[in-house]
Amino acid sequence: MADYLRDHHDKIVGRWSELVLAQVRGRTSLDEVRRELADLYSLIVRVLSDADDHAAGELRAALDELSRSRARDGYTPRETAIGMLALKEAVYEFVADTAELVPEFLVLSRMIDDLGLRTFEAYSAAREQIISDQSTSMLELSTPVVRLWEGIIAVPLVGTLDSARAQLVMEKLLDELVATSADHAVIDITGVPTVDTEVAQHLLKTAAAVRLLGAECTISGIRPQVAQTIVSLGIEFGDIATKANLADALALALRQAGMKVVPVA
């Protein structure tokens, strides 16, 4: 089989490339597909001919790399897997006439199935990686602590507040409070689309922790819909001050700090 595949290298790779290209039309060129597949093909031939021990490892590495780059380029799982599975069809078209090669074709077919599964594994691993990278960078992006005034800091929250983010916000806010020895913190939730009991729980915990440090905490940016949801869910913010917008919260904080803003004479 290995000898047969080696002898018909150009024809099979040509047919294989055509089949693959038919599936991923428009995303890549025939030459490119051909180059990628020719590499894989020679590795497969080396594995089949049992010539050396490294071939299997190299084949797996090449396949993983190819699948990863497919995942990054936005190919679908189907388009990625077909890249491998189409080889079966390509080979079969040539082998069908040669009866003595059929048993060996079964072995090859099983190997291709394995490799196809492997592409899928590598593909999903790469996708998972992309997702986790993105959520990490989103976490970093989304929690700036800004200084509004001497002794007054604020966290403008944008996006959904889940447990991981709430934890991060709390830690950053508290660290910043201690670092700047600010005695007023404003949590602005203008950018938080919905406030449910879980989000409210996180906000209350953060406010309680801020108080434990000896600072005051105000929650600002309560939109009309959010206010209605909060009331209908029966959430009590207790004695934590809430304000409609950041400006009101800043005014309150300034007043508590014994300052007031007056027009220039």
Binding site: L174, K205, A208, L212
Partner: peptide, 11 residues
């Protein structure tokens, strides 16, 4: 109070 302590107490 340290932030970590405050978080522990609220938890």
């Amino acid at each position: 109070m340290r932030p970590a302590v405050a978080i522990t107490l609220t938890e």
